[in-house]
Design a protein around this nucleic acid. Structure first.
Length: 596
DNA sequence: TAAGTCACG
DNA sequence: ACGTACGTGACTTAT
């Protein structure tokens, strides 16, 4: 427990001399942009760590080192790239220190990312890691701060309790690093993914999260009002059709109306056995009764209003006036990112009403939104991985790939492909990426299973390289228990040898899908590192503001547009040389919708 | 907290 | 006979 300046100086001497230091922060909030520092812990040697309480506030709390003075003293060490650091999810701690004006440098390791690279399908929280890799049961956060309504903020925790907890975290994190890093270092592919992709991209995500994105809250308020009015009318109409009022948002009450009152047929059941009222079911029922259609419209409006129009303005940070999402780097097993609080990776786009939400993602005066997305990225990766000549040639020639597939599967000249044939081919192509079955394809196209099977047979006849690749991938997954991306990301499939057929087949579909989805994730992460590196080296005011799996969104001052747009395209397409060209479509607009 | 539903790539 | 396309996160109801 570091309570005075001499003790602090003794620890500063240790961390300045150390080859690698683990550090951890304790804070007032889980929201990284709002969190304030309560204390710091450090560890340079297993079994020996310190806690520096800075702003514990409770009746009888001891005098602590002055927070701002201590941070000023530590700032050069934190900002130095020469002083190498490790953390557990250091992106969070870097946010906290950035909130106090410190730009942490030299974070060369992160145990969250190490665990993710080694076994993305496992849990990566520190308590789980400590148990799994060290056989140690650590003090849980809940044990010191409680949980739920009765929990207390960390600054209310006694400095004694906090010291045991926080110093242990720093110690255990360093020990975890020593257990995990050698396993990564020993495998060239894993080392590449960790050192050249995950560690650097964490810094890019930190910058993007802090950049935030500007939202036109008044536009969303207008839209929310309009949606509310439409919902009221639809609700009245549905109640009228039902002959009684009920809660439209309750699947249980809706089921009683549809299947009890109106005696409409049960199309399918939910996993728990209740009659389903999902979109597919309501579309079917809509052929026989007007109520389901009105309800579908109500659901669409309700989703837009509550999840987007009403919620996004509430997520605007009071200090910055912008929305700051959190990108989770160790959640999706395939290597993708996920986005939370708010999720900016599921903003509507498929319907005209939904797309209006995107009009509220704006650039400030004098700037524009640039959106750049990879075209058909996963199909291109399938062509590369399979080496299928027909597919590679089609991409090399810059052909419309769905038209090409339709021409092969239906045996007509590319120029004679009908729009329905192209639509079928598009569904087939998506299905391939997901490791589809004839059953799944049939359901999706609304055709007989035998017909779906014949399309698939035809496809694999025309693209034999793809058929061979899929077979090879399934076999490899069974033999090794894992598959990998082009760049060496390893994806484990614990269910691949399951005695349960459904689980095993599920794992086989994952084996097909994961290398494609995972390689796409690797590519865009490499592109993000290249783009952010270029922005910084050129000292541009352009900001990366969002990533949506195959798309990067930037906020670009008008004076930088002529340089940024073509260079982002170049960096994204040039990030790797696959056996097919990478193609990027980029657009500019005053908002996200117009940039598409 | 689970279940159902629906938004995205 | 069974189950059936991959990966996510948020909101609402019900318990």
């Amino acid at each position: 427990m570091v309570m005075d300046e001499p003790a602090l100086e003794r620890w500063i001497a240790k961390i300045e001399a150390a080859e690698l230091t683990c550090f951890d922060t304790e804070t007032t909030s889980l929201d990284p942009m709002a969190a304030e520092l309560v204390g710091l812990s450090f560890c340079v040697e297993a079994g020996e760590a310190c806690y520096v309480p800075l702003s514990h506030r409770y009746p009888g709390a001891p005098d602590q080192l002055d927070r701002e003075a201590t941070l000023a003293r530590l700032k050069p060490w934190f900002e130095s790239a020469r002083h190498r650091k490790v953390g557990q999810n250091a992106k969070y701690d870097r946010h906290v220190l950035a909130n106090h004006g410190i730009a942490v440098g030299g974070v060369v390791h992160d145990t969250l990312l190490a665990s993710y690279v080694l076994e993305s399908h496992q849990r990566h929280d520190m308590d789980s890691l400590a148990m799994r890799h060290l056989g140690v049961k650590t003090i849980a956060y809940e044990e010191v701060a409680g949980k739920g309504a009765s929990s207390i903020a960390f600054d209310q925790v006694s400095v004694e309790t906090a010291t045991g907890y926080s110093a242990e975290d720093a110690d255990v994190t360093l020990q975890l690093h020593r257990a995990l890093w050698p396993r990564i270092e020993a495998e060239a592919g894993l080392r590449h993914i960790y050192a050249d992709i995950e560690i650097p991209v964490a810094g890019v995500l930190l910058a993007m999260e802090r950049n935030g994105v500007l939202i036109d809250a008044s536009l969303l308020a207008t839209q929310g009002g309009e949606l509310g009015t439409k919902m009221l009318a639809l609700e009245a109409k549905v109640h009228e059709l039902a002959g009684q009022p009920f809660n439209l948002a309750s699947p249980k009450q809706l089921g009683e109306i549809l299947f009890g009152q109106l005696k409409l047929p049960v199309v399918k059941k939910t996993p728990s056995g209740a009659p389903s009222t999902d979109e597919e079911v309501l579309e079917k029922l809509a052929l026989d009764h007007p109520l389901p259609k009105a309800l579908l419209e109500h659901r669409a409006m309700s989703k837009l209003k509550s999840t987007y129009a009403d919620k996004l303005p509430r997520m605007v940070n009071a200090r910055t006036g912008r929305v700051h999402t959190n990108y989770a780097q160790a959640v999706a097993v395939t290597g993708r990112l996920s986005s939370t609080d708010p999720n900016l990776q599921n903003i509507p786009v498929r319907t005209a009403e939904g797309r209006r939400i995107r009009e509220a993602f704006v650039a400030p005066p004098g700037s524009k939104i640039v959106s750049a997305d990879y075209s058909q990225i996963e199909l291109r990766i399938m062509a590369h991985l399979s080496g299928d000549k027909g597919l590679i040639d089609a991409f090399a020639a810059g052909e419309d790939i769905h038209r090409h597939t339709a021409s092969e599967v239906f045996g007509v000249a590319a120029g004679d492909v009908s729009s329905e044939q192209r639509r079928y081919a598009k569904v087939i192509n998506f299905g391939l990426i997901y490791g589809m079955s004839a059953f799944g394809l049939a359901g999706n196209l609304g055709i007989e299973r035998a017909a779906a099977q014949s399309y698939m047979d035809k496809y694999f006849q025309r693209y034999p390289g793809v058929a061979a690749y899929m077979e090879r991938t399934r076999n490899e997954a069974r033999e090794r228990g894992w598959v990998e991306t082009v760049f060496g990301r390893r994806l484990w499939l614990p269910d691949i040898a399951s005695a349960n057929q459904a689980r095993r087949q599920g794992a086989e579909r994952q084996a097909i899908n994961a290398p494609m989805q995972g390689t796409a994730a690797d590519l865009i992460k490499l592109a993000m590192i290249a783009v952010q590196g270029w922005i910084e080296s050129e000292k541009l005011a352009t900001k990366l503001v969002m990533q949506v799996h195959d798309e990067l969104v930037l906020e670009v001052p008008e004076g930088e547009l002529d340089r940024v747009k073509p260079q982002v395209e170049r960096l994204m397409t040039g990030v790797a040389a696959l056996d097919v060209p990478l193609v990027v479509d980029a657009g500019v607009g005053e908002n996200w919708e117009r940039a598409h």
